[in-house]
C-alpha cells in the first residue's frame, strides 16, 4: 500500500479535537505556519500511526502532532500560525 492511500483528512480528527478543545474543530479555520495556506481543518491531511500527524494540504509541512497514552495527551501545534474558532 502506498503512503498516499493511508492519508485521511481532518474530519477524522473531529472526536479527539472535540475532547481537547470543547467545540467542533473540523470547521475551524487554520493557517499553515510554513506556507500561510488557509482552510478548514477538515481539509488538512491526516496520517495515523502510533500518533497522529497533521500536514498542510498545500505544502505538506507538519502542522500538528498528537500523541495520546497513559491517560495523557501531547499536542504539538508548532506548525500552525493561527486557528480560528467560531
Amino acid at each position: 500500500m502506498e503512503i498516499a492511500e493511508l492519508k485521511l483528512d481532518g474530519n477524522s480528527l473531529g472526536g479527539v479535537m472535540l475532547e481537547l478543545f470543547g467545540s467542533d474543530m473540523t470547521a475551524a479555520g487554520s493557517v499553515c505556519g510554513n506556507c500561510g495556506a488557509h482552510g478548514e481543518m477538515a481539509r488538512l491531511d491526516v496520517y495515523r500511526g502510533a500518533g497522529i500527524v497533521v500536514r498542510c494540504c498545500n505544502c505538506e509541512a507538519v502542522m500538528i502532532r498528537i500523541v495520546q497514552g497513559r491517560g495523557r495527551t501531547w499536542l504539538d501545534l508548532s506548525g500552525v500560525a493561527t486557528l480560528e474558532l467560531s
Binding site: 481532518g10 474530519n11 473531529g14 472526536g15 472535540l18 475532547e19 473540523t26 478548514e40 481543518m41 477538515a42
Partner: peptide, 9 residues
Amino acid sequence: VRGPIGGYF
C-alpha cells in the same frame, strides 16, 4: 459512542 462529530461535512 462519542459524538455527534463534525461541523464541516
